[in-house]
Design a protein around this nucleic acid. Structure first.
Lengths: 293, 293
DNA sequence: CCCGTCCTCTGACCCTGGTCAGAGAAATCC
DNA sequence: GGATTTCTCTGACCAGGGTCAGAGGACGGG
């Protein structure tokens, strides 16, 4: 990586945080400490403390004190949970809701003021550029790891994958068609973003020098990041390291984005090679043998 | 402005600050409090306290205590100013410099790790998108205001403008050719970014229904933001409000970016209309009369 | 030379964010 | 029914960031 890129990245961070500081100081710090304000937003329409603690990463003692402060201001009520008396539930009062909406409005106004000097065109350009930054940073945060095929999170990804296919295929999808963990003779990859699983894929040996990629899936919340391409490349590399010179895969005509991904990735259509009823299309790609740069 | 844009802007801010928090916690908070670390960076190669205070926006008592803490750790030395005994100067010791460089390296490494998952291409795309965001935000932060032509900052901009022309014109530029404050029969605009002047421009009445734009200048540190276009538009609007249907301007062949700006802005070349020796090219544009949307 | 100003330092405070240990109520396990 | 676990609350603490008022040395103008 070029040192210049790192420097420019830091420069952007410095500038951006400085500008945002000005923003948040003024909209949140108006009168209320930051912790209380965050809590006000996070409570929403009632939420048990357990969950609040987890979402905001707060110590139980600290949360308790924050809540009491908000209670004294008449913004929040804390009641016992209807079915579990240990748990307590925080709920905004009417004034609490108004206060939160006020904060919200002020924040919006600040931003409108900030972007007000730009033309519509420039604003759209700004938002688009931010989206690109965010997408790339999210992609950079994704960790792709090989896991034992029986791993629970891996199986869960496959279940979500099967459920989605079942919705998208006119004929439905039978989860029994999923490759059983024991049948994965190659590698199962799992993609995680900040600890949450957001995609998977696997390859198995199909014959001498030939591997098959199956069950390539990206969670809806992680689409558009380029994760499909990343997983596909990693799978190909894994198969090639294992000695495969050719990678095959089958797919369904309903999966248009997947088909586009394969074509972009250098796959070409071949005659059907499998007996899966869901493989309406088959693709193949030559991958460079292991050891070649 | 669309509410959707504001929401997306906020969403980006939330995501970005969350990611950066993780970054800075780990690279600065390793052992040293944030205030000390910032100070370590800001001192650089010696700096009087007055300036440090101004740059970091610190209370004098607070700064003093931070410095003492760094002194106790052997990272900083504070000496009286050679020529003014009231002022004191902070300077990093050898270990202080090493410490700062260490922090710096760790920060770089963190970023390299963060961006390591991306391809060269993607990294370049990220940096480019960040640059676009930064440019647009800087542009949004610029305030263009009409000022009395004799305003000191306005005259200073013109002096910098003249100095630059003097460098760029093969024949030099005589600052006496600047339009005197008294001769500005129209409006003088000043562009400021976070309080610092970064550009200027003015228009005067040239005849019935005709105005002339002069001395359009953008400071080097603010180029590439689109500020030239912004100033030009504001000047045209001002002239149009005053009743001008035609705007003229003259320029020098050495000012290639300016010429490109004029052409993009809808100006077309006309025969020379002025007797300024520096106006080697003349342009004209019809502007919509005042009151028309 | 004196007085007001500039600059720094010190001590006294304050609040926010955050941690820790233990008490006590409710639920669950055995 | 008793022991254990789960969850919340309370009190005691702590550090960092930040403000304020005043002391005192150094300068500069008259």
């Amino acid at each position: 990586m070029e040192a210049d890129q790192i420097e420019r990245f830091r420069d952007f961070n410095r500038y951006y945080t400085r500008r945002l500081d000005l923003l948040s100081e003024n909209y949140l710090g108006q009168d209320r400490p930051l912790g209380q304000a965050r809590l006000l937003f996070e409570i929403g329409d009632g939420c048990d403390l357990r969950e609040l603690r987890a979402r905001l990463g707060l110590d139980s003692g600290y949360l308790s004190r924050l809540l009491r402060a908000l209670e004294e201001q008449g913004l929040v009520e804390v009641e016992p949970h209807p079915s579990d008396g240990r748990v307590r539930v925080a709920r905004l009062t009417t004034t609490g809701r108004r206060e939160r909406d006020d904060l919200d409005d002020r924040s919006r106004e600040r931003i409108a003021g900030l972007l007000g000097g730009l033309s519509d065109e420039q604003r759209a350009e700004l938002i688009a550029a931010q989206a690109r930054v965010q997408r790339l940073l999210r992609l950079a945060a994704v960790r792709v790891t090989a896991v034992p095929p029986a791993t629970e999170t891996a199986r869960e990804c496959l279940r979500r994958y099967a459920a989605e296919l079942n919705e998208r295929f006119p004929e439905g999808y039978d989860a029994a068609s999923l490759t059983p963990a024991a049948a994965v003779t190659g590698e199962q990859l799992l993609a995680g973003e900040e600890g949450r699983p957001v995609g998977c894929g696997l390859w198995t040996r199909l014959g001498p020098g030939v591997a098959e990629i199956r069950h390539l899936w990206v969670a809806p919340e992680a689409r558009g990041l380029g994760l499909g391409r990343l997983l596909l490349e990693r799978l190909e590399q894994g198969a090639a390291r294992d000695g495969a010179g050719t990678v095959r895969l089958g797919t369904h005509t309903a999966l248009t984005e997947a088909i586009a991904l394969y074509r972009r990735g250098g796959y070409h259509e071949i005659a059907d090679y499998s007996d899966s009823p869901y493989n309406q299309l088959a693709f193949e790609k030559r991958v460079r043998p292991a050891g070649t740069a």
